[in-house]
Amino acid sequence: MTDAYIEVRNVSFSRGDRVIYENVSLTIPRGKITAVMGPSGTGKTTLLRLIAAQLAPDSGELLVDGKNIHALSRSNLYKARKKMGMLFQSGALFSDMSVAENIAFPMEEHTKLDAETISKRVLDKLYSVGLRGAAKLMPSELSGGMARRVALARAIALDPELVMYDEPFTGQDPISKGVLVKLIRQLNDTANITSVLVSHDVEESLSIADHVCILAGGRVIAEGSADEIRASDNAEVQQFLNGEPDGPVPFHYPENRADAGKGVL
C-alpha cells in the first residue's frame, strides 16, 4: 500500500433522510493526483467538505496526514486548513477584491510577510497560471476560465500540501480544459502537492489521475489506477465511463409506488 495522505474509514453521512455515504472507505495517496468520479448527486463535493471538516460525518473517521480532522479543536482545525487549498466549483473569488488582492488575501491573513514580498509572490503565482497581466482586474471582468485559474492561483498561495479541485472542468471550453489539465499536472509535479480532483468529466480526469475512485449510490464501486478502471468489468463503471443512458444506473428516476397512476400536477 502506498503512503496515504488522506484515509477515509467507514464514513457514513446523510443529509436529512437522504443517505449520501454508507460506510465508505477510500485512500488518497500522498503526492499523487486522485480523481474522485461519479454521477451528479453522489456527493462528490460533500467528500471534499468532509475532508476540510466543513461538514462532520455521522459515523466513521477521516484521517488527514495521520490526524483525525474532526477531532481537532477549532484553532487547530484552522491551522490544518492552512495546509489545504481548495478550488471551488464557482471559483469563489471575493467579489469586492481585485485579482491580486484575492491572491494576496491568504498570505496577508496567515503570514507576516511585508507588502513587497507578498506582491512579488502574487505575481509569481499569477505567472504560474499565465495571468500576470490580469492582476488589476476585478473578478467580474474575468471569463469563467480565467476566474478558475485565478482561484487556482489563490488556492496555492500558501504553498499547501493538499489541493482539492471541485469540478474544475465543468462549463469550460476545450482550450480552458486543456489549460487546467496541464496546470493541475504541473502543480502536482513541481510542488509535490497531493491533489484531489472531483469531477464527472471522464476523459480529462482519467488523463491526469494517478489514482481513481468511482462513487455511485453512496458506495465506492471501483478504486485503482486509470488503466485498471478502464479495464474494469463492473457494469456500473462501464456505464459511467462510456456514458450509456441506461444500465445499472437506471434512466428512469424511481417512482413512488403510492403515487402510481395519479396525475403529476
Binding site: 476540510a52 484552522y78 491551522k79 486548513r81 481548495m86 471551488f88 469563489a92 473569488l93 488575501f105 491573513e109
Partner: peptide, 14 residues
C-alpha cells in the same frame, strides 16, 4: 451561493 463564505473557511478565516 458563490461559495465565498466556504472559501473563507477553507483559508482558515472565520
Amino acid at each position: 451561493a458563490t461559495e465565498q463564505l466556504s472559501s473563507f473557511e477553507m483559508m482558515g478565516v472565520d
